[in-house]
Design a binder for these strands. Sequence first.
DNA 1: AGGTAAAATGCAACCGGGTTGCAGGGCAGA
DNA 2: TCTGCCCTGCAACCCGGTTGCATTTTACCT
Lengths: 145, 145
Amino acid sequence: MNAGQNDERNVQILLNKEIQPTAMRLLTLEYLLEQQAAVSLADIELHFHKADRITLYRTLKTFEQKGVIHSIQEQQVTKYLLCDESCATGIHHDDHLHFFCTKCRNTTCLHQVDLSVMSLPPGFSVVQWHFSASGICDRCAGTMQ
Amino acid sequence: MNAGQNDERNVQILLNKEIQPTAMRLLTLEYLLEQQAAVSLADIELHFHKADRITLYRTLKTFEQKGVIHSIQEQQVTKYLLCDESCATGIHHDDHLHFFCTKCRNTTCLHQVDLSVMSLPPGFSVVQWHFSASGICDRCAGTMQ
DNA sequence: AGGTAAAATGCAACCGGGTTGCAGGGCAGA
DNA sequence: TCTGCCCTGCAACCCGGTTGCATTTTACCT
């Protein structure tokens, strides 16, 4: 693990998406890369207690718009997750299931669930899917207290 | 169509769900019964321009809790729809697809889409599903301008 | 290196939906 | 008729999202 190398890699990630790699953005990206679950603006704000809420907000907006992260609605709050490689400016492929665990309150992506079987009645054309489920995740199920 | 009969029927609907049939609640129920699409608190408020926002809010909360309606999140705002017969206090069966048309901005339920094919990885247990899609609905597709 | 323009940041403030507390009013039951 | 409970309406608050504007940083050009 070499911090300098990670920085270098993260700079490249941003440049590939046409985002200027500023300090704030690199820190935010680094944080997002560490996350296993979706995080809200408030979560990030709490983590970087010195950072400005609005800057973070705009950073996330930029990331989302450029295809670095995608957002989901989780009971009134917006949460963010890293995108797949295939996402780009204005183009998202977020058609996978988001699972919200009511116990640990984490939201994770379940790419392995096959949603291709979904078909709509004639006349409807879908631009975007939003799939989510809530319940108990595998980790919490394993650790009954 | 007999207004008195409808009233009587609506009173019964509420009583069956253990809700006191007050004037406000009957009006709200009547309005909800007329809707083809999900409505927000603001929508209802606009329709009953004399009504109090908070009372409406609490009426909807009561309806939801008692299994008359269910709520969905539609880009930051909560919208409400009538439940199936099978819903009761604290028990909802809303596992059908909600389709949001980006043109007419209406949200409708698509019960005909089969979601039973969905299966999760082992370890996950689902309490509630939330399926939605956005795009162009059949009615708007038919009326290209 | 210095100057300039554009982009990013930080602060203040606003907005709108959701939510709660409390006082008044109406209705049902004693 | 009296009493208590539930519904209603008003005020106010909270919190996430969002915008405007002034300041700072960065990139670029000479």
